[in-house]
Amino acid sequence: MAKAGSIACEMVTGAAGTWAPRDRLQAFLAEHHAFVWRALRRLGVPDCDVEDASQQVFLVAHRRLAEIVPESERSFLFQTALRVAADWRRARRRRCEKTGTDLADVPDVGADPEELVDQQRRRALLDRVLGAMPLDLRAVFVLFELEEMTMIEIATISDIPPGTVASRLRRARRVFQETVKKLTAGSGARPGGRGEP
């Protein structure tokens, strides 16, 4: 399988690879495009940039398609998406340092649950909550809670031991719940029961 470890280098160099045939590319896109798009969004790439970012992911995959072991496509794509999202966050941080704006500076969407009726607002708030997590926790949280992958799948995709997945998920949930609680504090929303993994 093509390792995502060499992706950053490849993205810079345009290292040699073989362009995949159109039909394979088309099927590949049909199957995985939405997954990559959602992953990038939840990993912190904003709406306005997600098309460019997913293009970066698929550009790498396009070059390496012949080398990607079947059944490992998602793993490859997610690892690539993770790197692209990390690049984006770094680039954004640099821009924020220059402009003096805060990295977590997202529109204030209001904390009252009554105001969460609008889908867009909910997603903006979710971005804000997820933004409070380090990327490694965020990745596990997104894969488990939103993509509904199993712990084993996540361990495979992320190339980390299953125990690490479980501990990251616990920590991610704690951050998620605390951040939601903080954002809804004073609005009358009471966090209910929830279980730990």
């Binding site: 997913s54 649950p113 997603r123 712990m151 949930r173 939601v180 809804t184 209910g192």
Partner: peptide, 27 residues
């Protein structure tokens, strides 16, 4: 042991709304 997902385990109304919003999201 596979833990339950937050949505299946009595997440708060707000948490549920947030997680649901992401599931409905797409390109």
């Amino acid at each position: 042991n596979e833990p339950c997902r937050l949505l299946e385990q009595g997440a708060t109304e707000v948490e549920r709304a947030l997680l649901d919003s992401a599931r409905a999201d797409g390109p």
